[in-house]
């Protein structure tokens, strides 16, 4: 139990360091959109997700509706449902309902990737991974939000690209390997650009939903995924 927790901490250190620098960018972004440091940290502490938070603070800043917020989070974060299903196959016997409800909070792309590569996963291993990763995510957000006001504009401006750089690093390698992913990426990018410049009245959150649902549905039909593929995200 204790050793599982410590192993989780150890395995999570690279995630922690990665999160620290990426969430620094989120902190700067949130403050630049007019959120307080406390709000930015509160969002990171309760959400623990990059893309959903970036879209979320965009909606908050634009004064979007709660319906838009719910739908946007649903579409952006629905991948966690699939990861949860996948990971649930690897849980050991001590994973009762209570542990499942607690540990599910820590399902992120990176934590999932580390956990699912284990032979079996115990609750305390998940807690170790989650605690160390969240520590990086929340403290990075705080530092970014606090420094965003102090740093010269040239630095905080340049940090604004960090999260998008990470997103590109997630989508480009699989797009290189698989036609279906490449199609999904290109279709979504083209549609999103069309929304930005042509259908300007559609708010950002809804535009992301429409673009990604259309692109993913198209690819699901024309580039069917083989059986085991659903575990990799």
């Amino acid at each position: 139990m204790k050793s599982d927790f410590l192993k989780g901490i150890r395995d999570g250190i690279p995630i922690c360091l990665g999160y620290l620098s990426v969430s620094f960018g989120f902190g700067i972004l949130a403050v630049s959109l007019g959120l307080s440091i406390l709000s930015a940290v509160g969002i990171s502490l309760t959400n623990l997700t990059s893309a959903g938070q970036v879209a979320g603070v965009g909606i908050i800043a634009a004064g979007g509706s709660l319906v838009e917020m719910v739908l946007t989070q649903l579409v952006i974060n629905i991948r966690y449902s699939l990861m949860g299903i996948s990971l649930s196959q690897k849980l050991d016997g001590s994973f009762n309902t209570m542990h499942r409800m607690l540990a599910s909070f820590g399902i992120t792309d990176e934590i999932f990737a580390v956990a699912v590569s284990q032979k079996s996963v115990s609750p305390y291993y998940m807690y170790g991974l989650t605690v160390i990763s969240a520590l990086g995510w929340v403290s990075g957000t705080f530092l970014g939000a606090a420094a965003g006001n102090i740093l010269p504009a040239s630095v905080s401006g340049a940090m604004g690209i960090v999260l998008y750089g990470m997103f590109l690093a997630i989508i480009i390698p699989p797009a290189k390997k698989e036609k279906g992913v490449l199609a999904a990426v290109l279709i979504a990018a083209v549609l999103s650009t069309v929304f930005e410049y042509v259908f300007k009245s559609v708010s950002g959150g809804f535009a992301i939903i429409i673009c990604s649902v259309l692109a993913a549905a198209f690819c699901a039909v024309f580039f069917p995924v083989p059986d085991e593929k659903e575990d990799e995200t």
Partner: peptide
Amino acid sequence: RGFLYYIPYAVLSAMT
């Protein structure tokens, strides 16, 4: 299954 597989890539692309 295919839809869920492609949705993260489509979302990140549309956001970026």
